[in-house]
Amino acid sequence: MLYINDLTKNYGSFTAVNHLSLHIPEGDLFGFVGPNGAGKTTTIRIVCGLLRASGGSVRIGSTAAAVGSRAMKRMIGYVPDFFGVYDNLKVREYMDLYGSMYGMYSRDIAKLTDDLLELVNLSDKKEVYVDTLSRGMKQRLCVARALLHNPSLLILDEPNSGLDPRARVEMKELLKNLHSMGKTIVISSHILSELSEMCNSIGIMNHGQLITAGKIEDIMQQVAGGKRMHIQVASGMESAVRIMKEQAGARIESVRENEIIILFGGADEEISALIGRMIQEQVVLTGFYREEGSLESLFMQLTGGGEQ
């Protein structure tokens, strides 16, 4: 669906996006993660035609339309991290304004507005002035506005920033709903726990470069040092430590009184063999568990503990 090839953006001597290449398949709910200044917003703005790239190319689907062209704009629905409102404009008129900006006729806009407002749960606010809506409602209205011209790709830049917990849940449900309808969605967000719940793939950026991208499970697997495992030992601690040191692919992170924490990237069979060997060498184990990798820990590892 979205092909970004060797994208670069320079501001004088500063490189905001550095030779970024990325492919987001159709139907994906893709999370764009990175610390402040990583280049996420710059990348999104280039894709939406709001910024000229210094190099590289962006393509959506099989079309050869240039970034910023009318054909490309028709394929993208953009929801920015802010919500600007016009005083004295009702929800229906707001939708009508943006629909007509896409060259749609009022009759078609009116029909679609009803459907979309129902989708974002704002049907009862149709005749209400936009500036009187809550922030969460405004953000959902913004999503409805971005869907008005039926884009193939929906891009949301920090859609949950400044929203209260209830509005966040509503937004998350809305995005999941849209994903289940087959829309390709790209979200940039700081709230990693929500991204891990929603997205099926992610891309992590730092200092303008894409560190990694792909399915969340695959990335978790790839991360250097592997999965963190806690092994609780009742007796034979010395033997246990020796076995860990000898085990290829394992790295001892810490040794406490009754517990060894290791990072091990091996497969399940290798873990079984490791436990078997410890039992054979008379190590008495009282517990063993593997930490479930979180997006937060992954993010911190990959960005070197950078600011979230």
Binding site: R70, P80, G84, M101, Y102, G103
Partner: peptide
Amino acid sequence: GEKERQTFDIMLTTCMS
């Protein structure tokens, strides 16, 4: 004014030249 209201970027992403 559109820039201050933060509506200008959205306007530019539409099909209006």
